[in-house]
Design a protein around this nucleic acid. Structure first.
Lengths: 128, 128
DNA sequence: CAGTATCCAAAGGGATACTG
DNA sequence: CAGTATCCCTTTGGATACTG
């Protein structure tokens, strides 16, 4: 991934170009957050990723607390954003398989980081 | 950061221990998302980080579209989670400075990744 | 099994005005 | 300047029931 992490270091002095660049970065972060918004998206992705292929009712069980209505809605949004692929299997009764697209797989780094950070945060703030 | 990224690779076979581990990881991701939830948190953090220290009204301007009510609420939550530090300056009229804590600074990797991913996503989906 | 449809309470959040 | 307070409309999302 062609990305220079130095670009986002905290700076004390900013040129006009730097500020324009920062605006762009803010927009990019918003784009990501919009795609991942809601309580469930990342958990759903994580579940599908973990099992490689996963059916509706399986995800419903994996993601603690989600309702079928919510799952259906979130899956639709993820599909629109081309993060997952939906396949109807010719079984009786019908079953539907979800898997990550290549684009969806690029989220893995972020999920890894969020996992690591969440664990640290829990240790630090929420309790030992 | 002591974190083995291989732990989160997508797997085809799962042992009982793997599944338990996955549950933990899901919870950790949820923790992170809870802390960062809402439309504005990351943008606020990004603004403060970029300028190192930033006042209320400055952030209000940096984050396009946010209302003072929302900003106030979000800043409070970030402070509770010990991501930012609030300092009242003895000026006339009073001004308040926000800066990231050390713990807040550990979010930088995630913000960097979200920025990079958002840019790729925009190119790919939203349109060049 | 994989959703949809409906009802409805609660939360979210903008606009505006006000305070120390 | 840095918030609070209030009004009020919109969105969210759980519970439940229903469909192909």
């Amino acid at each position: 991934m062609p990305f220079n992490s130095m670009e986002l270091e905290c700076k004390k002095l900013q040129s006009k170009e730097d500020k324009a660049e920062h605006k762009k970065e803010m927009k990019a972060v918003q784009d990501s957050m919009d795609v991942l918004n809601g309580k469930w998206k990342i958990a759903i992705i994580s579940s599908i990723c973990y099992y490689n292929k996963r059916r509706f009712s399986d995800i419903l069980n994996d993601v603690a607390g989600i309702s079928n209505k919510m799952l259906s809605k979130e899956l639709k949004e993820l599909e629109i954003n081309q993060l997952i692929k939906r396949t109807v299997l010719d079984t009786q009764p019908v079953s539907v398989q979800y898997e990550l697209t290549e684009h969806g797989l690029t989220l893995k780094t972020i999920i890894n980081n969020l996992t690591a950070w969440g664990m640290e945060h829990r240790k630090k703030i929420i309790g030992k």
